[in-house]
Design a protein around this nucleic acid. Structure first.
Lengths: 120, 120
DNA sequence: GTTGATGGTTACTTTTTGGTAAGTAGGGCA
DNA sequence: TGCCCTACTTACCAAAAAGTAACCATCAAC
């Protein structure tokens, strides 16, 4: 098997939290365990397909855990793993920096809105 | 003009530092001003086209400054702006977390290498 | 026995992103 | 005269990521 080569640490991080959805999902899970439906309500723009796909990839990277309750109708809960929690500080800063960025651009006259500034 | 809407701060951050190259470029610029050629030697996998394209986008977001020396052959230097410096802490953490992630995966038996651990 | 709730998969299409290769500029220099 | 250097641009193509829409399973309630 060919050896995977990184040139700088951030490459590996971005492979895990990069993409359009993963960091958003993680920012929500940072606060509490969530069910599939809760996540898709919290991220209304995401499709079912993308949501489960990204959750599977985060699970494979050991960032997120998946807990299936064998019930009908089904119930599945997602949470950060202990290792995933090690990203919590970074995720928080990414949220806060983004909020500040949006503020600046608004002050600059850009037509831009941030719907929820729920990051504590 | 339609108002751009974000649902959570991290969306805005990722729009700026996301993608395959931007965070890598920024991690290099974090240490010092660099010329175009230095950057492409530091990031050997990137193509000319991607390098200048990403630098232009970072410049447009006021994260990176571009200083042209009117010489022949041309000389252009890139640096973080003051605002770009506000990302420095995050970039550092992204590098460190990635280095740790690679260590774990190596310890886990994955065939994986990190070429330079130059993040201080 | 039809409907609804939840979580999920699949095939297919579109959009976005990235890669390659070639070309530009203009003075230096042999 | 013609080639080098550096930073960049452009046209074109390939690959990856994301969107759409339809479908599945299960059991409970009506």
């Amino acid at each position: 098997m060919p050896t995977k080569t990184y040139h700088i640490g951030v490459e590996a991080t971005m492979e895990i939290i990069g993409g359009k959805w993963k960091s958003i999902i993680l920012c929500h899970l940072r606060h509490h365990t969530m069910r599939t439906g809760e996540l898709s309500r919290a991220i209304p723009q995401i499709s079912q397909k993308m949501l489960t796909q990204q959750l599977r990839e985060l699970e494979a990277a050991n960032i997120v855990s998946r807990h299936v309750f064998h019930q009908v109708p089904p119930k599945v809960e997602y949470a950060l793993t202990d290792y995933g929690e090690s990203l919590s500080g970074i995720l928080h800063e990414l949220c806060v920096w983004g909020e500040d960025n949006i503020d600046r651009r608004q002050a600059d006259g850009e037509a831009i809105t941030l719907l929820s500034r729920d990051d504590i």
